[in-house]
C-alpha cells in the first residue's frame, strides 16, 4: 500500500535581520493509516511541520520540500482552490486551545454545520453534526449546538473542535497539542475518542506534543525533533531503548512519582546534535 502522506526534505525558513533562519531543516517521513507522534521542545519545529503539511505556513515563511504528497496529490504547488477542496474535507487539524481556535461569536452548531455544508451534504448537516457531537461523547448535543464557545468548559470546547474536524471524515488528522490545555483525566477521555476514531475510520493521525510519556503510550511510532531536525525515529513501545542522547535526556529529566533522584538530571545540550 502506498503511504497516505510522504514528506521528503521539508524545509521552512523565516526571514530575519541576519538573513533567513531555517526552523525546519530537512524533515522526511511517511505516514500510513496509523498514529504518528512528533515530540520535541518549544522551538523544535514540530508545529511548523504540521502546519506546512496543511499549507498553513505563515506568509512571511517559506516552505520547500523535495516531495510533499498526500494520497498521490502533490501539495507543493497546489492552487488555493485545490487547498480548499482538501482542507477540512480530506485533511484537517485540531489546535491546542479551544478558547482561541473557535469563533467566539458563532454558536458551536453553526460552526459545525458550516464545515458540513461546505463539503456537500446541506440537508443532513444538522443530523450529521448532532451525531458527531454524540460520537465525541458530549452528553447533551442539542444544548452544545446552541452554545457559544465561552459557555463551554475547556474539555467540552476541545471535544467540539474535534467533532468539527472529524465531521467531514477526513483521511488525515493533524492534532497539534490537542490535550495540553486540558486536565489529565479529561485528556485521557479526549485521547480515547481520538483513538477510537482512528481505529474505526482508518484515519491517519499526526499527534504533535511535548509530552514524551503521553506520546509513547498513545502513538504507534514517534519522531523526536530537535532544532528543526528529526534526531530519532522510534517504535513507541520501545521508548526506553532510545539511542539518541537527546531523547534519553528528555526521558531522564522528567520527575517520576516513584523516583527520588535528586537533583534531577538535566539535559546537557550538545552542539553536535544540530548537525
Amino acid at each position: 500500500m502506498s503511504p497516505l502522506l510522504s514528506v521528503e526534505n521539508l524545509r521552512i525558513a523565516f526571514p530575519s535581520r541576519q538573513g533567513p533562519v531555517e526552523v525546519v531543516r530537512g524533515v522526511s517521513f511517511e505516514l500510513g493509516r496509523e498514529r504518528l507522534g512528533i515530540v520535541g521542545e518549544s522551538g523544535s519545529g514540530k508545529s511548523q511541520t504540521g502546519r506546512a503539511i496543511l499549507g498553513l505556513t505563515p506568509v512571511s515563511g517559506k516552505a520547500t520540500a523535495d516531495l510533499l504528497e498526500f494520497d498521490g496529490i502533490d501539495l507543493r504547488d497546489a492552487t488555493p482552490a485545490k487547498w480548499r477542496s482538501l482542507r477540512g474535507a480530506r485533511m484537517s487539524m485540531v489546535m491546542q486551545d479551544p478558547k482561541f481556535s473557535l469563533n467566539p461569536v458563532m454558536t458551536i452548531g453553526k460552526q459545525l454545520m458550516e464545515a458540513v455544508k461546505l463539503h456537500g451534504g446541506k440537508s443532513e448537516a444538522r443530523d450529521k453534526s448532532l451525531a458527531m457531537l454524540e460520537a465525541v461523547q458530549i452528553r447533551d448535543p442539542e444544548r452544545v449546538m446552541a452554545a457559544y464557545p465561552h459557555e463551554l468548559s475547556g474539555g467540552m470546547g476541545q471535544r467540539a473542535m474535534i467533532a468539527m474536524m472529524l465531521v467531514t471524515e477526513p483521511d488525515l488528522l493533524i492534532a497539534d497539542e490537542p490535550t495540553s490545555a486540558l486536565d489529565v483525566t479529561v485528556q485521557i477521555e479526549v485521547l480515547r475518542i481520538l483513538d477510537r476514531l482512528v481505529s474505526e475510520r482508518g484515519m491517519g493521525l499526526i499527534f504533535i506534543s511535548h509530552d514524551l510519556e503521553l506520546v509513547s503510550t498513545f502513538c504507534d511510532r514517534v519522531l523526536v525533533m530537535y532544532a528543526g531536525r528529526v534526531v530519532e525515529e522510534l517504535d513507541a513501545a520501545k521508548m526506553s531503548e532510545a539511542q539518541h542522547p537527546y531523547t534519553r535526556g528528555l526521558i531522564g529529566c522528567l520527575p517520576k512519582i516513584n523516583g527520588d533522584v535528586r537533583p534531577l538530571p538535566v539535559l546537557a545540550r550538545d552542539a553536535a546534535w544540530l548537525e
Partner: peptide, 9 residues
C-alpha cells in the same frame, strides 16, 4: 519545557 522544568525544580 521538560528539560527547563528539571533545572527550575
Amino acid at each position: 519545557d521538560a528539560s527547563i522544568q528539571a533545572e527550575v525544580l
